[in-house]
Computed example of a mutant assay.
Amino acid sequence: MTRTTTPRRRVLLAAAAGAALSLALTACGSGSGTHDMGGMDHAASSPTGHDMAGMSHGPNGTDGTTAAADGLAAERGGYRLDGALSGAEYRFTVTGPDGGVLTSYRPEQTMEMHFYAIRSDLSGFRHLHPSMAPDGTWTAPLEGLEPGDWRLYASFVPGAGSGAGTGLVLSRTASVPGAADPVPLPPAATGTTADGYAVTVAGTPRAGAAGELTVTVSKDGQPVTDLQPYLGTYAHLTAFHAGDLAFAHLHPEEEAAEGAGGGPALAFHAELPQAGNWRLFLQFRTGGTLHTAALTLDVAA
């Protein structure tokens, strides 16, 4: 669960990021994909979610204790992701260190599983909270994804095994058949729009250094102060590195207060270990509707 960041919390976050998971990815059948950059093609179930403690993700690494996690592996710490596309659904399991299918998970930001799909050119994005069958099989609906190569991520905290309580991000690739038209990455910018809302991002993070990004939401030139809780806070922010699709979850520094609206400014702890372009996806809720805004952030070395 997220909480207000104190200086001590910042230190802990930075230390956790340095010891987090490093992942390399393996190929997996077909997926369903779509690239949509306006309000972004996305899906999400409830206004709850996960705060992947220590989940700032770096370059392709190893299982060393100082390597940062980047979500680019199907296996980590004895846990393995396996899945297959069945129609417009991606069905997958996580195998634990004992060789059995994992059925015990700990909620993070109130959800036991966060599932992401990102098109290889960063033009399509999905964030889902799939359902799990009693046998440990998860089903993620992926209708309407456009042709192309996709990477599928499972972000979770095991409730059993040697890694119980430790956040993991595992992923595999998938290809949606058909003619795939690549979409150029939009240039770096400090602002974007989604569903009539203007979103600006302030802050100049440097690769490998802890910093802060401040997101401000407005509409029709007026500050938005009625953001509703989503995943335990007022906004959810993920980032993917151009080229290798390394994954990062940027941690909100304020949890949602019951009965109070959020905004217009939201602070996020940012620790992006690689230089270059990162595509940011901000999700926030107003009036019961979930909005997704996307922009490109240039991170200096």
Results as ranks from 00 to 15, higher is better:
Val224Phe: 05
Asp149Cys: 07
Gly165Cys: 00
Ile118Pro: 13
Leu13His: 01
Gly58Pro: 10
His236Val: 14
Asp121Asn: 14
Ser218Met: 05
Gly259His: 11
Ala73Asn: 10
Pro158Thr: 01
Gly287Arg: 09
Gly191Gln: 03
Pro273Ala: 12
His249Arg: 04
Thr216Ser: 14
Leu280Thr: 00
Val201His: 00
Pro134Phe: 12
Met55Leu: 13
Leu231Asn: 03
Thr26Tyr: 06
Pro47Leu: 05
Ser46Thr: 08
Leu245Pro: 06
Ala239Lys: 01
Arg10Asn: 00
Ala207Val: 11
Ala198Gly: 05
Pro184Ile: 14
Val101Tyr: 14
Ala257Gln: 11
Thr95Ser: 13
Glu271Asp: 12
Thr289Met: 13
Thr214Ala: 12
Thr103His: 12
Trp138His: 15
Glu89Trp: 08
Leu72Thr: 07
Ala294Asp: 04
Gly39Thr: 09
Leu21Gln: 01
Asp181Leu: 14
Ala67Glu: 10
Arg80Leu: 07
Gly83Pro: 02
Tyr116Gly: 12
Gly211Trp: 08
Phe125Lys: 12
Asp181Lys: 13
Met113Ile: 06
Val201Leu: 04
Gly136Asp: 07
His291Ala: 10
Met1Gly: 08
Pro229Asn: 03
Val217Gln: 06
Tyr105Gln: 07
Thr4Met: 03
Leu145Trp: 15
Val201Gly: 00
Leu81Pro: 00
Trp138Ile: 15
Gly163Arg: 03
Gly161Arg: 02
Glu108Pro: 04
Leu245Glu: 05
Gly38Ala: 09
Ala256Phe: 02
Met40Tyr: 00
Leu272Glu: 04
Leu12Gln: 03
Ala301Glu: 14
Pro184His: 15
Leu295Asn: 01
His57Val: 12
Tyr197Thr: 12
Gly287Ser: 13
Met1Asn: 05
Ala207Gly: 14
Leu282Asp: 11
Leu12Ala: 05
Leu227Ser: 07
Ser30Met: 06
Pro147Tyr: 11
Tyr105Asp: 10
Leu13Ile: 00
Pro252Cys: 07
Asp181Arg: 11
Gly144Pro: 15
Ala242Asp: 15
Pro47Gly: 10
Tyr90Phe: 15
Ser45Trp: 06
Asp149Pro: 04
Gly124Glu: 15
Ser123Trp: 09
Leu142Glu: 15
Gly18Tyr: 03
Pro205Ala: 06
Thr65Lys: 10
Pro187Met: 07
Met1Arg: 06
His236Gln: 10
Ala202Lys: 09
Asp244Glu: 12
Leu25Pro: 00
Leu231Gln: 07
Gly124Arg: 02
Glu146Val: 11
Ala239Gly: 07
Gly136Trp: 07
Gly159Cys: 03
Tyr116Ile: 15
Gly208Ser: 14
Gly54Asp: 05
Leu21Pro: 01
Phe125Arg: 12
Thr225Leu: 05
Ala275Lys: 00
Thr193His: 02
Ala15Asp: 00
Leu266Val: 15
Leu213Gln: 13
